[in-house]
Write a protein that binds this DNA or RNA. Structure first.
Lengths: 276, 276
DNA sequence: TGCGAGCATGTAGTAAAATTACAGAAAAAT
DNA sequence: ATTTTTCTGTAATTTTACTACATGCTCGCA
């Protein structure tokens, strides 16, 4: 949140910049201050403060307070430490685990600003859902496909470029295309997103928010990429994507209500038979 | 904070208990709700909600909101809470995420008692490594296979019973068979483990420690299974397995030294070419 | 059974806080 | 220089948190 503020600071009007700077300098106070108090501190008026909130993508002053306390009470315990060649096995193992945990925690803090409801809405009545991913993301796509089809919605996974482009080319308005990519740098994804959207389908992207793919999507779930400074760095972001899809899956199951939970139960029972 | 509420719950009046329970069940919503909203949800009046706040030692409703958001972004509260059918989307999504995070944290605490060094030792000079898994674990197996082969060790993934049994039947002493199963209840896995071990291969199991499969393995990585009380419970343990394999992968890369890190770098560079 | 003390709960009112509508002022463009 | 656009503040409106008070309920005791 604080990062968001400082990033959008240059594009704001002078008075709003004053508000932003004061918040960055006194985050703790700002979190529990009232609108009037904040306006007074920044030598501006109350509406300007509210406008500032809107400018940084929030609904209002109320939401700012919530986001600030969130940001301030967020621990940084499992911080990322690079694995180096002279690490002992156990050190390395813990570092990797910590990186994985941290990437999930990061995703969790961003969760409230993600379009979960919109995605569920689109998927709920979808004619079919296609999960597309290349390389490591291909596994995520396949995994998601196997998970979502149990809700009774037709699903496919697309794990190579031709398949993805072909799907986009024949997509229909009630289709949903979920694009999975860590970097968002595959050009074909951007093309596919564009085509699918032009045909009226909903394109959901789980990817790097600064990428071209992200710009072309109907709904964006920003997945930050940890810069891989060393070859030992594992793909923690892949875990975060899986977890996010788990979460969306459950949300979708809830939205579909009885029908979905019944189908889930049946598919669980189907396995149980062999468990002897 | 949530703990404080549930602790002081029994000593409260009926209406205040309703308030407390609703907050415990919908913490995320409660954190951003207004006084009126909360009163309506609990079918009580606004003053009762305020009285509840005072009863649990808070100054007022405003403070409750702050404390709740604090509590929600604090790692102590990643405890598993079941998703129920009347959860709002955002509550459910957070619950799922928390479950995932918690399962990784649990795995991290057990990490030091796991035979990582032994597993790395066996894999380091393996003629080949086979990853076996059925259903959801099949994806984990495929994923692991794609990750480990980049170290220069021949790898396969076995995703159906006949394949697994056949592999066990022709295994050689320097082969490593990694068995992935959540429950450990598949009978064929136990048989395959037994056969492979008899032929001198190393059998590594990532599974429920109480299962038959675990008993037959050469090396056991205990993965606790969260009892799935509801159909909405996602497979968080799968995430933990993936993270664990990530960790082992990095440990193995370190153990193989220059050779492995060179191969990792080359395989990363191979992808980068297409990124234009 | 009847009566009142003490507690639980809700109604109505109030003060403060957040948000909106609108208008004046400053800056930019023509 | 004038128009247009953008920025900013005043004032009104709505919403929100909180308080005072009244009602009703339960339980003990006569």
């Amino acid at each position: 949140m604080l990062a968001t503020i400082s990033k959008s600071l240059p594009g704001l009007s002078p008075s709003e910049q004053r508000v932003g700077r004061w918040i960055l300098n006194h985050p703790k106070e700002a979190a529990s201050a009232t609108l009037a108090r904040l306006a007074r501190e920044c030598r501006t008026s109350e509406p300007t403060v509210v406008r500032f909130c809107r400018s940084v993508g929030l609904g209002g002053f109320r939401e700012l307070a919530i986001r600030l306390t969130e940001a301030l009470s967020n621990p940084a315990s499992y911080v990322h430490r690079d694995v180096s060649a002279d690490d002992s096995t156990s050190d390395a193992v813990f570092k990797v685990m910590d990186a994985s945990i941290q990437s999930l925690i990061d995703m969790r803090t961003q969760l409230s600003s993600m379009p979960v409801d919109e995605a569920v809405g689109a998927m709920k009545n979808a004619r079919q859902i296609a999960f597309a991913g290349l390389g490591a993301s291909g596994h995520v796509a396949t995994d998601a496909c196997h998970k979502f089809f149990r809700l009774g919605i037709p699903c496919t996974s697309l794990c190579d470029t031709p398949m993805i482009l072909q799907f986009a080319a024949i997509a229909e308005p009630s289709d949903v295309l979920v694009l999975l990519s860590h970097t968002g740098r595959w050009n074909d994804f951007t093309v596919a997103a564009k085509i699918a959207r032009e045909r009226g389908a909903t394109v959901i992207a789980l990817t790097n928010p600064d990428s071209d793919v992200a710009a072309e999507a109907s709904l964006l779930f920003p997945c930050q990429v940890i810069e891989d400074t060393s070859v030992y760095t594992p793909m923690s972001s892949r875990l975060a994507q899986l977890a996010l899809l788990d979460a969306i899956h459950v949300a979708l199951a809830l939205a579909r209500g009885e029908v979905a939970s019944d189908k889930l139960r049946r598919s669980k029972d189907a396995l149980r038979i062999d468990f002897t």
